[in-house]
Nucleic acid binder design. Structure first.
Length: 429
RNA sequence: GUGGCCGUAGCUCAGUUGGCUAGAGCGCCUGGUUGUGGCCCAGGUUGUCGCGGGUUCAAGUCCCGUCGGUCACCCCA
């Protein structure tokens, strides 16, 4: 085979292709997409769509220069012409979404927006179970509110998505990393606590002390985990306002019956988070077990040149949700499959099929000139409830025969006009 | 970028200490039925054994290289 998908990318064929990985079929995707849209609608979120590439600079400004994502995982390319700016395929959708909110002056029209999105994102990492170079993110951004209830709402919403998708094995962990007022103090407290034992930490962590101490907390090297478990936790260093915010978030989660755990090790890899951060993970996933990550970002909109308003959002991996849900989905079978007894009847049959389709029924026929037996085999395989049979006898009377594929021996000849009614009646029951 | 494992039919895989013409199950096709599917029966179809080189009388099998996949580290959705 000469051509294959680029490393870390996947095709999603129709369900009948029966590829080994159950999640790779468009029937399953469509059913999840429908459920997800329904959840967003029930919670009052509206869809926004943005380009899949943006100016590279946008990601540097928003996601943070030191985050791994912009540091080494972006697919960047030069634009055309004189200016030849650098563009990048989006590694996440939050920056583009906020950019759009500002560019289209959404906040001038309404001071608070609940937006959702779903679309491809790209990161140049080494692929692995549940990790792809092109993957699909779905997420929300609630822009223009500092209300702790909206933090809780995004989490409750995602839990609802998991429920309706049929993902049972999940866990929600939350943390507060403080605001502009208290984060600096915590940073210093961390540095002070880490420095004396610095040689005991891994190479990575030693670099993190200067660049981003907080990330030491989510290092997975066993020695570092042991060391960092004794470090001061963010919650103890947050200001009264941040503590109050966290308590309100927890209260709302409890009230909604959404189970969660406070985990001081949740830090997040992106620079823009403030106060609430959270992560949904699933034990049925493998090493890459994060389903969804999110949190509050109270300074991002302002940093990007917009008004000083608070926001909160999350992003989830659609492939991972699909991977974690155990039930499959089959394609919807057509209402009928038409069979021509003689090759010369294929043209009139084709006409009949199209007439029935125009009435709203779904149906198909053979396009390979197969034998009658084979056509019935196809009818059976398609899952159609009815076979529509056109042979010399029926043609002579201007009729077609309708055969019920589910009931042995049930056949009746009717005029084409009646056929539509009979099929619709049968399909409905 | 680093490391482990794996590349044989459309799919899942077997293939012994190197040894006849490379196999099974499933699928697919045709027939058993002047115009009837599923079940059954009969027959049929498909291979660059990932690629290149080496050892050997002989390589799917051993060696080297290479490409691809996969899992893990890292990081994250």
């Amino acid at each position: 085979m000469k051509f294959r998908t680029p490393e870390g990318t996947r095709d999603i064929p129709p369900a009948q292709a029966e590829v080994a990985e159950r999640w790779r079929n468009t029937a399953l995707w469509q059913s999840l997409e429908a459920k997800v849209r329904d959840c967003f609608a029930r919670f009052g979120y509206e869809e926004i769509r943005t380009p899949i590439f943006e100016l590279t600079e946008l990601f540097h400004k928003s996601s943070g220069e030191t985050s791994d994502i912009v540091e080494k995982e972006m697919f960047s390319f030069k634009g055309r012409g004189e200016k030849a700016e650098s563009f990048s395929l989006r590694p996440e959708l939050t920056p583009g979404t906020i950019r759009a909110v500002l560019e289209d002056s959404l906040l001038e029209k309404k001071s608070f927006w609940k937006l959702w999105y779903m679309g491809p994102a790209f990161r140049g990492e080494a692929p692995q179970a549940g990790r792809f170079r092109q993957f699909t993110q779905l997420g929300v951004e609630a822009v223009g509110s500092a209300d702790p209830l909206i933090d809780a709402e995004t989490m409750i919403l995602f839990a609802e998505i998991l429920k309706s998708a049929g993902v049972a094995a999940w866990e929600l962990r939350i943390n507060s990393i403080g605001c502009g007022a208290c984060r600096g103090g915590y940073r210093e407290a961390l540095r002070a606590a880490v420095t004396p034992e610095l040689p005991k930490y891994c190479d990575n962590c030693r670099r993190r002390v200067e660049r981003n101490v907080f990330r030491i907390l989510d290092c997975k090297v066993p020695d570092c985990v042991a060391l960092s478990s004794r470090l001061p936790s963010a919650i103890d260093h947050t200001c009264a306002a941040c503590r109050g915010h966290m308590e309100a978030v927890e209260g709302a989660l409890k009230g909604a019956g959404t189970p969660y755990k406070v985990d001081p090790r949740i830090v997040r890899g992106l620079d823009y988070y403030t106060r609430t951060v959270f992560e949904f993970s699933s034990s049925s996933l493998g090493a890459q077990n994060a389903l969804c990550g999110g949190g509050r970002y109270d300074t991002l909109v302002r940093d990007m040149g917009g008004p000083d308003v608070g926001s909160v959002g999350f992003a989830a991996g659609v492939e991972r949700i699909l991977l974690a849900m155990e039930q499959g989905a089959a394609a919807k079978p057509p209402d009928f499959f038409a069979v021509a007894i003689r090759p010369e009847l294929r043209a009139p049959l084709f006409e009949a099929v199209n007439r029935l389709r125009r009435t709203g029924l779904s149906g198909d026929m053979d396009f390979e000139g197969r034998s009658v037996k084979s056509q019935f085999r196809q009818a059976n395989r398609s899952g159609a409830r009815y076979a529509l049979v056109l042979g010399p006898e029926e043609a002579a009377q201007g009729k077609v025969k309708i055969k019920n594929m589910l009931k042995e021996g049930e056949e009746r000849a009717v005029s084409l006009d009646e056929a539509a009614a009979v099929l619709r009646e049968g399909v409905r029951s």
